[in-house]
């Protein structure tokens, strides 16, 4: 309970400053509606509008992109990490595309996957996969050498060492990669929903609200997207705590 006090106070403070800014007329009320209005608009969006559906669509796309990214990134990263020389060979390419803004890839992926769902999910999966791959490979490369030697002396063969030691050693880093990957996938999906022929999703809803001057709703959608990102991050942090109980001890 105690742990909740600080964040709740912080959030209340934020709303208070917002309200004061509205009262002082810092900006045009069209651009900055009072928090109560943003709240009721968002409520209405959920109750009678399509906001729940939009949120679900964004979650669905992000989840699908993340699953594809993990299915490719984890095994490939572990395999490359186990062959360090091979990884050094492809490291530059991985680093290069990891540093490339994913948005710059939209045109290319549009040609490859067409203007439908495919492109949104493919770009998000591509971006997330690189983050996951990179982390998985480094997790394996940085495996404690003593543990590998210990396993070898206890009679573990190469594949056995991979399964019994390297993957476990890399697990904390793999989960860090997944956390980064899912956040990036959400970012890319929301951007894609704004600009690539969408009829639903939070990105679509936020840009629609902006164009229709529904600024209360616009802020509401922004907060829903923010909450989504925050919860995904939190979920993975809890997962890390639960599954890598030994990390850092």
């Amino acid at each position: 309970m105690r742990a909740l006090v600080a964040p709740v106070l912080g959030a209340l403070g934020f709303v208070l400053i917002w309200q004061i800014a509205v009262l002082l007329r810092v900006a045009d009320p069209i651009l900055l509606p009072p928090p109560a209005e943003a709240f009721t608009e968002t409520w209405r969006g959920f109750a009678t509008g399509t906001l729940a559906h939009d949120t679900w669509r964004t979650v669905e796309r992000t989840g699908l992109a993340f699953l594809i990214a993990s299915a490719i990134g984890v095994p490939l990263g572990v395999a490359l990490g186990a062959q360090e020389r091979l990884y050094r060979g492809v490291e530059f390419v991985v680093d290069f595309f990891r540093s490339t803004p994913a948005s710059a890839l939209f045109p290319l992926f549009l040609i490859l996957f067409g203007p439908g769902e495919g492109t949104k999910i493919a770009v998000a999966a591509f971006g997330a996969a690189l983050v996951i791959l990179f982390n998985a490979a480094y997790g394996v490369i940085n495996a404690r050498r003593t543990r590998v030697l210990a396993a070898r002396i206890m009679g573990a063969s190469g594949p056995r060492i991979l399964v019994d030691v390297l993957i476990w050693e890399a697990l904390p880093q793999i989960l860090v990669g997944m956390r980064g990957g899912v956040s990036l996938a959400l970012v890319i999906v929301v951007v894609a929903e704004m600009f690539i022929g969408s009829t639903d999703g939070l990105g679509h809803r936020v840009i629609n609200a902006q164009m229709l001057f529904e600024s209360g709703l616009m802020y509401g959608v922004i907060f829903v997207a923010g909450a989504l990102g925050y919860l995904l991050n939190l979920g993975f942090l809890l997962l890390e705590k639960r599954f890598v109980h030994w990390s850092g001890r």
Binding site: T146, R147, A150, A156, L171, V244, W246
Partner: peptide, 29 residues
């Protein structure tokens, strides 16, 4: 052969319980 490393923190498998660490080489055998 058996080998005991200086740095036990880096030689034991922290994801396995102590007993499972001891069982490990016997299972490999």
């Amino acid at each position: 052969v058996g080998y005991v490393f200086q740095n036990y923190r880096e030689a034991l498998f922290p994801w396995r319980r102590a007993a499972d660490n001891i069982r490990y080489p016997m299972r490999r055998m």
